[in-house]
Design a protein around this nucleic acid. Structure first.
Lengths: 144, 144
DNA sequence: CGAAATTATCTTGTGTGCAAGATATTTGTG
DNA sequence: CACAAATATCTTGCACACAAGATAATTTCG
């Protein structure tokens, strides 16, 4: 029986379904290090931006404060990063990678390669898909 | 500052981000009727398949039993569907739309059109994107 | 037929996501 | 300089997602 095709004419479901599938492919690489997929995104942001605020991470990941607050606290408890009130602006919280967090760099790279190999697409095909997704994101995002 | 582009070279993030964005566009249409996006998918499956089992809905939506059990219970409490042990196989639970659930048909249609109009893509462009997403889904899905 | 394997669902526990309201700090204005 | 508006984060509440283990019914096979 192929009731697993019932919804595949809905673009929204294709995105929703593939996104969850891709997340699940990251899990076996990240879980041994006690890191989840959204936490992987946060680590990547911190690696690229360096020390920054919670707000910066929210803009980069498009995640809500209500999502990030407990997520960052768990990562801090695990020793991957530190959370400190900014001296310059006491409203803002400064997020910094610890050496333990920085040590995960190779894991981030491995996770990314692991997926890249599974895709079975050429660089060019990937880029074309990304262009399409970016166009849609820009067009649909009300906050832009 | 455009730290909102920090992660946009990651295909996984493009999918993750756009999927959440699309879900958020369904919300204003569905919420007035007390329905969430995953519940919208379940209603669509039931409309198309008719009465079926929880397992059938899981295969169609690719959602886990641990997700579906409480989700379906909430929908049953709300009067949108009924859950009954199958007479033929007492392990199986039969899910059926109530008349109240069926009455949401136009809402499902409206939600879908609402997104379609926002896309700003031709039918052909949408179909090409879906073809790409289906290929990726089939290639990456270990359970296929 | 009866025990083992399979199937379908349920339960528990952890971690997101997001809306809405609360708190604290800083900035802009007169 | 007081004070309203804006900014940054926190808290609460609800609804997913999924892994892992438990339960119950059905099939399969010797």
């Amino acid at each position: 029986m192929s009731e697993n095709r019932v919804l595949h004419d809905l673009l929204c479901f294709d995105l929703y379904s593939l996104s969850r599938l891709v997340t699940s492919l990251y899990r076996p690489v990240l879980e041994p290090h006690g890191v989840t997929y959204p936490q992987y995104l946060v680590l990547t942001v911190l690696t690229r931006l360096g020390t920054c605020s919670i707000g910066d991470i929210g803009r980069a990941t498009r995640l809500d404060h209500g999502t990030l607050t407990p997520l960052l606290r768990r990562m801090a408890d695990r020793g991957l990063l530190t959370l400190d009130r900014s001296a310059a602006d006491a409203r803002s919280v400064t997020v910094s990678l610890t050496s333990e967090g920085e040590a995960l760099g190779p894991v981030l790279h491995e996770a990314r390669c692991h997926l890249g190999e599974s895709l079975g697409m050429t660089e060019q095909e990937v880029r074309r898909l990304q262009t399409t997704l970016h166009q849609l994101t820009d067009r649909l995002d009300p906050a832009k």
